[in-house]
Write a protein that binds this DNA or RNA. Sequence first.
DNA 1: AATCGTCGTTCTT
DNA 2: AAGAACGACGATT
Length: 177
Amino acid sequence: MRSKNPIWRRSVSTAAGEFTAVFSAAGLRELHFPGEKILRSPPDSQPVPPAVAKNCLRLETSLKAILSGREPKQRPHLDWSRATPFQQSVWRELLAIPCGSVRTYGQIASALAKPLAARAVGTACGANPVPVLVPCHRVLAIGGGLGGFSGGLDWKRKLLTLERVTWGGAILANSRD
DNA sequence: AATCGTCGTTCTT
DNA sequence: AAGAACGACGATT
């Protein structure tokens, strides 16, 4: 029987491998790295509503753009309906970081007028269900540390490298664009 | 290297 | 409903 809040799963193949996306009618819910285990999502569904198909196409082009170091033209709609207001504010801030530049957790916190909430920002980044597109990989620790990455630090390094970002040194010099 | 302040989220009562 | 526990932090000692 059909659920009241249906979701669809689609795979997106890129040069970096096959990502898996989960959509609701409202937008992209989750993006999973190649090889990542997916729990609690429906089997790969062929018939998707036209709006979802269109959104998926946007995802594909955006993802490929970022993976080649370019800024995506039009992103897919994102479904943040399950997120807390704080998480939404953090993720919104992440979207404002241009390709190739980075921020620290503390800078994001300050941008939200909560300069002491760096650690909470880290938690919110870890809860980001749409990595790469919502560029949580562009947030580093102060003093040259990489910080963490829910998708595995290898992916964070890979994404930063293809954006020509160097770290481990004077991040603050690079952080204002 | 160890500790502490801070704060949003998630578990426990 | 309230409190404890837990981090993708940052500063201090």
